[in-house]
Amino acid sequence: MIPVNTPVFNGNEEKYLVDCIRSGWISSEGSYVTRFEREFASYIGMDHGVAVSNGSAALDIALEAIGLNEGDEVIMPTFTIISPAFSVLRTGAKIVLVDMDNDTWNMALDEVESKITPKTKAIIAVHIYGLTSNLKRLREICDKKGIILIEDAAEAHGQEVFGKKVGSYGDISTFSFYPNKTITTGEGGIVLTRDVKLAEKARELRNLSFKPSKRRFVHYSFGWNYRMTNLQAAIGCAQLENIEEHIRKKKLIGKLYTEQLKGIPGVQLPLEKTNFSVNNYWVFGIVLDDEEKAIYVQEELGKHGIGTRPFFWSMHEQPVFNELGLFLGEHYPIAERLSRCGFYLPSGLGLNETEIQSVCQAFRNLINQ
């Protein structure tokens, strides 16, 4: 079996975990939590980091921290994992969807500008599969209109746009450290910001809204238990020490796939670069020219012991939202094509060149059929 993802632990993960166990600091109170927050925020180029239990928790906290309320509008891409949509709807705010760019598979900025109204409070930029939208332009749009920019950079660890780290463009940014991410803590996430008040609010929200200046167990607002453990953070510190090597390996995987699969009729490969960024190949996605063909190829690859994952299903076609009367009659053709015809091949850091060759040979054979 060649799984769709295999994480790699070849640094100080074991050493730091043993240190946690021997010291007895295994909860969220340990020193690795603050170390990971500080080091990851510094790596991205932000001032404050608030480590949390997962990427979805980070989104919940980010949206609550900025004061999103009922009646506010939030612009976001329709082609994304469902987490940011869930987080927005829990606040009572309204989601305004936009379609995607055909080449980068990220949200189309011309459409973003056309959807801005006086009620637009925030834009969530979800960075997809190794590339992003033009964040410099998006930052300028938000500054001009007085809109809060939230980056969901769960898939974009170490990615750069115009030489600046993704996650540093937003007023507030979130990351995930799920096992398929470029660095992992098993589960885990983080909220990043330059605003000290937003950081303080995020720290309160992740910890049941305890206030350091008030008596313990006396609460004045709602919050969550979204804390990251010292064990998770210890793994994160070790992973972060090797993040540049992980990114180099991801780019090598993308290069090898591209060399072996380019030029196949009816197959769209991910862009290697744009005029503002180079693909980090968090995963190697492909889009076929027919939905039935895409389903068939995924099923047949599975029979050959090769793992795949379908692309995200668009928000405007999610049954859970349609049943609530949301997005009915909305149509986003590029997102619909990506959702139906796209999937990604094994892309984990444990993948080797021989396995890539096997995947490509099986894929070419199926397409030729």
Results as ranks from 00 to 15, higher is better:
Val4Ser: 12
Thr6Asp: 05
Val8Asp: 00
Asn12Val: 08
Tyr16Ser: 01
Asp19Thr: 09
Gly24Thr: 11
Thr34Arg: 15
Thr34Leu: 14
Phe36Trp: 12
Ala41Pro: 07
Ser42Gln: 12
Tyr43Phe: 15
Ala51Gln: 03
Ser53Ile: 07
Ser56Met: 10
Ile61Gly: 00
Glu64Gln: 13
Ala65Leu: 05
Gly67Glu: 08
Asp72Leu: 02
Ser87Pro: 08
Arg90Ser: 14
Thr91Asn: 04
Leu109Arg: 10
Val112Lys: 06
Ser114Phe: 04
Lys115Gln: 12
Lys119Cys: 09
Ala122Lys: 07
Ser133Val: 07
Leu149Thr: 01
Glu151Phe: 08
Asp152Glu: 14
Phe162Met: 12
Phe162His: 15
Asp171Tyr: 04
Ile172Phe: 02
Asn180His: 12
Thr185Ile: 09
Gly186Asp: 05
Gly188Tyr: 05
Gly188Pro: 02
Val191Gln: 05
Leu192Thr: 05
Arg194Glu: 12
Asp195Thr: 05
Arg206Gly: 01
Cys237Val: 15
Glu241Gln: 13
Ile247Ala: 05
Arg248Ser: 14
Tyr257Glu: 00
Glu259Thr: 11
Ile264Glu: 07
Pro265Lys: 13
Pro265Asn: 10
Leu271Ser: 03
Thr274Arg: 07
Val278Asn: 12
Asn279Gln: 08
Asn279Lys: 01
Gly285His: 01
Ile286Arg: 10
Val297Gly: 07
Glu299Pro: 00
Gly305Gln: 12
Arg309Lys: 15
Pro310Val: 08
Met315Trp: 01
Glu317Pro: 00
Gly329Asn: 05
Pro333Glu: 13
Arg337Leu: 06
Ser339Ala: 15
Arg340His: 13
Ser347Gln: 00
Gly348Val: 05
Glu353Asn: 13
Cys360Gln: 06
Arg364Val: 13
